[in-house]
Amino acid sequence: MPSIPSPISDPVAILRDLITAPSVTPDAGEAIARLARILEAAGFDCETVTFSAPGTSDVVNLYARIGQGAPHLTFGGHVDVVPPGDAAGWRHDPFSAAIEDGRLYGRGAVDMKGGIAAFVAAALDHLATRRPGAGTLSFLITGDEEGPSINGTVKLLRWAHDRGERFDAAIVGEPTNPQAVGDAIKVGRRGSLSGTVTVTGRQGHVAYPHLAENPIPGLIRLMGALLAEPLDAGNERFQPSNLEFVSVDVGNPAWNVIPGTARARFNIRFNDRWSRPTLDAWLRARLAAAAGDGLAWTLALETPSSDSFLTVDPRLVDGLGAAIETVTGHRPELSTGGGTSDARFIKDYCPVVEFGLVGQTMHQVDEHVPVADLVTLTAIYRVFLDGFFDGADRTA
């Protein structure tokens, strides 16, 4: 078994520096600045780029790059975090980065400043053993992953591509492990599509229903049609697709008024048997059959949506799996479960996988990471980096 290199850089110190820069989405500027200072001191060329869009907050993003030529590996991540909620409910101040009983507490410790800190530490140690010209290493860091994801990674990728950047592989440091570091690599994700079904009736007095047309029974019928049968049974790569209604609303505060419209919002998480066009067709066929001729209904699908994807690149998937086995002694599961991440944008530019910390406390009060997990993740990233750039001229 290959030897595990001894760490030099301290991921704990890097993580504490990032956590103590509160960066509740989309206000991530100080955390971006601190990360840029760390990388610039190590020789990275860093550029902060701010993107805007009507109706959204400006978002600061970071692109950092070192080296030249192929292969080019990029690390994707976000320093924005969800709000901590009531700070009084936390064991420690959510932005103090306190350490107690071997655990480092703070909002973003797991999701995902911890993953960034581990990769930075691993990258600095890796770079100390090779000449920067032997391949390219970069960071794509956003402050808009926990928010609407409009002014973040999707635009940063386009900006980098327009400047001539070409990536051969990417790792996103999201917390992918259910129980222990090394349990799972996310090699793909199901797609996501949201929509609204609206039924239009005629408003009236509840005492005179013959003068009105209640849209609620029709909406219930349409909802039942969409839930009557599963979309599919899944396959060897993906779990089954599922449609979930997330709200039903008529906008009616009165007790004596039959509403004029009723609407239901839903989200579909779908595997590679489906796409937006095929789901659109399936939804409309189901709804039309259930509605018949007498029901006035509409379907509106939200934009953007995301397609499913699966990464099979051996250098990336097998290389990371081998690094995990080297450090932990076991092979990880190759998973496509869970929600979406910025990997859905990166997959349009290069093969991408996700691998980070254990996700059990993300978004919770007292979010924390065991220091031992942070050290383990750093070691895995370091072994992977050494293997990915194997063949480069070594100086140590």
Rank of each mutant, 00 (worst) to 15 (best):
P5N: 02
P5L: 00
V12K: 01
V12T: 00
R16D: 00
T20M: 04
V24T: 07
T25L: 03
I32C: 07
C46E: 06
T48M: 15
T50H: 06
Y63S: 06
G76W: 06
H78V: 01
V81S: 01
V82Y: 11
P83V: 09
G85L: 00
A88R: 09
G89E: 12
W90L: 00
F95A: 07
A97Y: 00
R103M: 04
L104N: 00
G108V: 08
K113L: 10
G115T: 02
L124F: 14
L137F: 04
L157I: 05
R158P: 05
H161E: 12
R163N: 05
G173A: 12
G173V: 14
G182R: 08
A184Q: 06
I185M: 01
K186Y: 10
G188R: 07
S194Q: 15
V199F: 03
G201D: 13
R202T: 08
P209K: 02
H210A: 07
P215L: 02
G218L: 07
L219K: 11
L219P: 13
L227I: 09
A228F: 06
E229N: 11
P230M: 05
N235A: 03
F238P: 02
S241G: 03
L243K: 04
E244S: 15
N252E: 04
P253K: 08
V257Y: 13
I258H: 13
G260A: 07
A262I: 13
R269G: 07
T278Y: 10
T278V: 09
D280A: 05
D293W: 09
L295Y: 05
A296S: 12
L299A: 11
A300T: 15
S308H: 15
F309Y: 08
L310S: 11
V317Y: 05
E325T: 12
T326E: 08
V327H: 08
R331D: 10
P332D: 05
P332T: 07
T336V: 08
A343I: 03
I346Q: 03
V358L: 05
V358D: 07
M362P: 12
E367I: 03
V371N: 00
L377P: 09
A379V: 10
Y381V: 06
F384Q: 04
F388E: 14
A392N: 10
